[in-house]
């Protein structure tokens, strides 16, 4: 990879009160890549995601997006730089319909491209089209995840952050969602930064990957390299294969 990365996380340390959750994390994501971050529960993966979005903000280090330092920007302004997130736990609006949830995602352009984009989302996830007037809170887990990703895509993001999209979902649905991500990346050149515990599926999908342990990045490489790396296999893959 050459040239400036789209997202550059540089020596970032993030604290919750006095507890250090990230200690000197460096991560690069280049334009058009799918990069995944794997690690055990509590390693700090979600914290890194949220630090990129500015809540909580990094105490030291820098987050640079598209050549601009966004470390100290408030969350909503970071989102306006077109970093969209499907957060951990999906966080869709439960009392709003699927359609309204998607509308909320398109707020940055004031719904200018809404009609055309919503058709795209409905082709990507036909299930959402069927369920468009159903309340978000009554969707199944898989549908909620599709909605969460769909809502993030409505913002026409330059970078899509996905925090554990496979969490609690049946393998077949996970496969469908990962295929959708791959398709977006291939056909539209969407840049994706993906956090996963489902290491096998994530690394197979990704161009590159990082391994995080206790708030530090301990390993990085291409998806293929990490998949055959004995340490990674021992820690995250053996027995965990879906």
């Amino acid at each position: 990879m050459t040239g400036e990365p789209l997202l550059k996380v540089q020596a970032v340390e993030t604290y919750y009160g006095n507890i250090r959750a990230l200690s000197g994390v460096d991560v690069d994501v280049h334009k058009g890549e799918i990069v995944s971050l794997i690690g055990a529960n509590g390693a700090g993966k979600s914290t890194l995601m949220m630090t990129i979005c500015g809540s909580p903000q990094a105490r030291t280090g820098q987050v640079i997006f598209d050549g601009e330092d966004i470390t100290r920007l408030p969350t909503h302004l970071i989102a306006r730089k077109r970093i969209a997130q499907s957060p951990e736990g999906r966080r869709i609006f439960p009392r709003m319909t699927v359609y309204e949830n998607l509308q909320m995602g398109a707020g940055l352009d004031n719904l200018k491209y809404f009609n055309e984009d919503v058709e795209k989302i409905f082709t990507l996830f036909p299930r959402l089209k069927e369920r468009q007037s159903q309340r978000g809170g009554t969707l199944s887990g898989g549908e909620q995840q599709m909605l969460s990703i769909g809502r993030a895509l409505m913002a026409r993001p330059k970078l899509l952050l996905l925090d554990e999209p496979s969490l609690g979902l049946a393998p077949l649905i996970v496969k469908g969602i990962f295929e959708a991500i791959k398709k977006l990346n291939k056909e539209e050149g969407l840049t994706v930064f993906l956090v996963e515990q489902n290491a096998f599926a994530a690394l197979k999908l990704s161009d590159r990957g990082y391994v995080m342990v206790n708030g530090k990045v301990t390993m990085s490489g291409t998806g293929k390299e990490l998949l055959i790396n004995p340490e990674v296999r021992a820690a995250y893959l053996e027995g965990g294969r879906h």
Partner: peptide, 18 residues
């Protein structure tokens, strides 16, 4: 719409640029 979304989930609102 932002008001109603805010009632549902403040964090999600912020990450949508509100």
């Amino acid at each position: 719409r932002a008001w109603e979304a805010l009632r549902e989930d403040e964090i999600a609102c912020r990450s949508l640029g509100i």
